[in-house]
Design a protein around this nucleic acid. Structure first.
Lengths: 219, 219, 219, 219
DNA sequence: TATGAATGAGATTTCATTCAT
DNA sequence: AATGAATGAAATCTCATTCAT
């Protein structure tokens, strides 16, 4: 199915930026970069399908059509692969937050919100699993979840700087967090199939709710 | 039962109803019931802290101050313990959904919503981990997630039957799901400490958003 | 073959003192202690036969007739098993050093040295591999070899405190180290079969060399 | 050639003679010989630092600033590299043994011994690791350790042919082995830093001990 | 009813060696 | 002659589950 805003299907588009060095820090040639990218893509998919803990390195290398040995040539551990994906996602989310539109009422305000939600949804389709895993900080004893004060906290803080909530006495921080809660989870339900409406309808509804319910802009 | 503003922390209050039979179906005496309850409580905490897969039976028995042997006297597997917790939660959630108030505008409508949210929040504090684990269906190949069509789906379906969304052309199913998304995730952020506002403020804000943004009732 | 000084064959006598707690620090019952002892004995033998790095946990558990799982119940890693053995050996060596006899000339002085060498030889037969591994600090990146400034250094320092070397201008530290070098390596050649003389002859020769050559006591 | 008291550290001076043919027997040009020499030097260092088993081919090629592929162009295996180093050392040791001086008392006898020990020490500084590894026959199932009956055995047998031990009833074989034990291990302690005396003092002491203690020549 | 001990299948990780350019 | 990449067998380690008392 085509995505809500983008003609090309990004559901399995490559993730992971141009950074490319092995676990030992060696720089890569073209072939090595391709293999690394295959592993990143496979990791993204497998984490999405099974969650961080249930995902086995074996699943990743099978999906990437390579070997265990090769995996550890590029990533020093399963967690290292996750970290690579997470950093890339965090970067995308920061950029997205920076583009959150000024909230205004009326048709055009609503269209801006709607467009932004479409971008969020695309990102979530590609990287929701990483976002969720990081959020839940299921990795307990690792240093994850402490990076940057939490992916979602960071994201909502950036949005808070750009919104004016419904009631004048509501803390923008709180409003932003509620907004993120609403949007993230609804996208989640949709991506996982719990919510069977088509994506556009869902995003339209979300846009209304954000405009009216969270930010209180008159229609 | 503790309320959303109760000063004592009920987050790990006992869970699991009066049902008490071992893995082999044997009926229990007082001591056995206490042991089983300790295991249920410990399981609830450990699943909350680490997630289903990362939770080890060893963690549970250590927290319950008992042994592996004893664990398997009461539960046939790790999954069985989870199921016991899940069933108890599912029952509570069904009851809660049945009490979802009719949406009306004005002060009294808002107060009804606010009270219901307080109950949800209490439940979530105690059993959020189970809800999340079940929702994410982290348990891959087991028959979980198929039970009753998903905990959240079921819950929102029951709520859908009781609401009339903001815009007349919005599907009540969709609106209910959005509502659940909003409420569940905001509570989650609060329980895990990502959202530092006090509980009452958060629940007040949620009540407003539900009344205005999701259900579109005028103030 | 009977040992040089002791009627019972200590070549595979149990090693590891009465300390007995699992890797997680739990205290042990009789059965557990027996298993742990089997693992210590097996470890001692396997390290002796193959050296630290070539020794596989698999060899150890096979020799101890137990399973991998059990191994890790008692020791957190291969290195941990080695550490347990090493501590026990270090203790024995300290005791032995404390008994190093005052060097005097004549028959009785020689007999004292000879008796002490017999004890060293027995210890070396049982634990030479651990001594050598620790000495070579083959374990590079671990904190081993740094414990107590080196097993052999410590040992010879204790002996230095008790000897008066041949030439008056020779540093006792140096003389003691030379003594240890001589004794340790000769025992090594004998234990490994490079030196085919019988043990008593070898120890007699060593006694003479120590009395005359290192400590310079007149015959 | 550097002497035992040379201020520059020759510990890792090039090893490996002029023989130069690849693993496949191909003859080499100048560049190839240089590469092979780099690998031999690196191998010598790495085996010294970590021991045979802990040494990784990766360590060797990194130190030699070349690649895995290149390594296997020159040596058919890790063991093959070791063998190349070992053969070179064995040759040097045979030559050294042949030069062992006739043991006589007095100053000039002592000076001869002292000079010989200086040569041994130099050799040991460069190649001690290979000597030790070969001695300990860490290479388990390979045909190593059987070559020529053991490096040290061979060496001491050659020396035995040239000495007359202290007591007339002592086997020259035994005396030679004791001598080698004494000298090898003392040099080892010095090279590894366990023995902090300066090299000349140590070698003087060794000379005395050999003359008096092992060979029993009067002063 | 309780528990300490044991198990083994399966997961992660390492590394000598081979391949393709 | 050189090299970056790939491989897979074998090693270490984990943990749900069963056993024996």
């Amino acid at each position: 199915m085509a995505t809500a805003t983008d003609p090309v299907d990004p559901a399995h588009a490559p993730v992971g930026g141009p950074s490319s060095a092995t676990a030992q820090g060696r720089e890569l040639r073209a072939r090595g970069r391709r293999t690394m990218q295959r592993l990143l893509d496979a990791g993204s998919t497998v984490f999405a399908e099974r969650g961080y803990h249930a995902a086995r390195v074996d699943d990743v290398v099978k999906k990437a059509k390579t070997s265990h040995g090769t995996f550890y040539l590029y990533f020093s551990s399963k967690e290292d692969l996750f970290r690579a994906l997470a950093i890339s996602v965090a970067t995308e989310m920061a950029a997205l937050a920076a583009d959150f539109p000024p909230i205004v009422g009326g048709r055009s305000g609503r269209a801006d919100i709607r467009a932004w939600l479409g971008r969020f949804y695309d990102l979530y389709r590609r990287s929701g699993a990483v976002i969720r895993t990081w959020t839940e900080a299921e990795m307990s004893d690792s240093e994850f979840g402490r990076i940057g004060g939490g992916l979602v906290t960071e994201f909502s803080a950036r949005i808070a700087a750009r919104i004016r909530p419904a009631a004048p006495d509501v803390d923008p921080q709180l409003a932003a967090m509620v907004l993120v809660a609403l949007v993230e989870r609804t996208c989640y339900y949709h991506v996982t199939g719990s919510l069977r409406t088509d994506a556009d309808t869902m995003l339209d509804t979300l846009a209304t709710t954000v405009q009216l319910g969270v930010c209180g802009a008159p229609d």
